[in-house]
């Protein structure tokens, strides 16, 4: 079976592609070949051993869905892809729009609807949480620098300034807020989210929804080491049923279909969990889940293939991941092949 996976950017802001691939390759039931889809010829996942059988460059989401579909058709003609698993927030809307056309080519996907994607988007999360009695930090949407002036009327500094897809800065005063606003505007555009800052520890859940309101698995984790980019570089599975039940509630209310990452802050003042973000795909730390007993990407594949699956309800507490950086060596010929032709096949 050939499964195409995106998000091979295993950098210091890692995409979830490589960990999702590692999960799939643990399958004993299926003989899986991975087709890596990449945006940048230096995405490290391309060069990792025993990860992809072949890799193909695809156009950035800003090129539009038609360009993406044309490219996928060419790749499909060569590889006969059975399944595509997109793993990056910014490309999901494009893949969701192409679901029907991909199905016509015989390519399976397991994605939320555009409406489901919108409900959990960063600019609408507070509204969703408010409606469903889930605690979440308050926010305002900044559409121009004028809105930054109103921060002090609504919140006390520090506050968090967030991009619609990525990036978040904790800022302590007006000057820092303007600087963060400008950085995010240049990179990710509008809207920009200004969110109440909550003091406390960060907890995350990776979960899977079947699209009919059922959560088919979930693993909760606490970050043990956080980089200056806010990325978890080590984490440990924990046992707090409140996190799992909150995740179940979110999946039930949205009828979420696909993998998901829920990010919580446990308030240092009250001990209550606040939902700060829902990411519409598996996280970069997904490989911790099968290590703890829940191979959620593989479970999603089974659901995609129409198999009857039983929800996974337990996992090993105290399983730890420690991320590492590792220099991969290649040669100029290989790089030329990837950079000039946008594709490479690895010999097994």
């Amino acid at each position: 079976m050939k499964i195409a996976v995106t998000g091979l950017n295993a950098t210091d802001n890692p995409g979830p592609g490589v960990p999702v691939i590692r999960c799939l390759k643990e399958s004993k039931e299926y003989d899986i070949d991975i087709i890596g889809l990449f945006y940048d010829s230096l995405d490290p996942g391309i060069y990792m051993e025993n990860i992809c059988a072949a890799c193909y460059m695809i156009p950035y989401p800003s090129s539009g869905v038609n360009a993406l579909f044309d490219r996928l058709k060419v790749i499909h003609e060569k590889e006969k892809i059975d399944v595509i698993i997109p793993t990056l927030d910014s490309e999901l809307y494009g893949f969701v729009k192409l679901q029907g056309k991909l199905a016509d080519l015989g390519i399976k996907t397991f994605l939320p609807t555009a409406e489901q994607l919108n409900i959990r988007s960063k600019d609408k999360l507070f509204e969703f949480c408010d409606t469903n009695q889930i605690k979440a930090p308050k926010n305002i949407l900044a559409a121009s620098v004028k809105d930054i002036y109103s921060i002090s009327e609504k919140f006390e500094y520090p506050v968090v300034i967030k991009g619609i897809f990525y990036d978040a800065y904790v800022v302590n005063n007006f000057e820092e807020a303007v600087s963060a606003f400008n950085k995010i505007r240049a990179k990710w555009g509008y809207p920009i989210i200004v969110q109440e800052y909550l003091k406390g520890d960060e907890f995350n859940v990776v979960a899977l929804g079947d699209g009919n309101g059922q959560m088919t698995g979930a693993v909760a984790m606490r970050k043990l080491y956080i980089t200056d980019k806010g990325k978890g570089w080590a984490g440990i599975t924990i046992n707090d049923n409140r996190l799992i039940e909150l995740s179940r509630k979110v999946i039930e209310r949205i009828n979420w279909r696909s993998g998901m990452e829920l990010e919580f802050i446990k308030s240092a003042e009250t001990g209550e969990y606040y939902l700060i973000e829902i990411n519409p795909r598996f996280p970069a730390w997904t490989y911790l889940a099968p290590a703890a007993g829940q191979n959620l990407p593989l479970l999603m594949l089974k659901m995609m293939l129409g198999e009857d699956v039983k929800p996974l309800t337990s996992y090993t507490i105290g399983t730890i991941f420690v991320r590492s950086s590792w220099d991969l060596i290649t040669d100029i010929k290989t790089f030329e092949q990837i950079a000039s032709f946008g594709e490479i096949k690895w010999t097994k």
């Binding site: 520890d201 984790m221 043990l224 984490g235 440990i236 924990i238 046992n239 507490i317 105290g318």
Partner: peptide, 18 residues
């Protein structure tokens, strides 16, 4: 009851991961 303490005194709080 869930508190885990090893023979060497390493203590793990399963609810928080500390």
């Amino acid at each position: 009851e869930t508190l885990a303490v090893s023979d060497s005194g390493f203590l793990f709080l399963p609810n928080t991961g500390e």
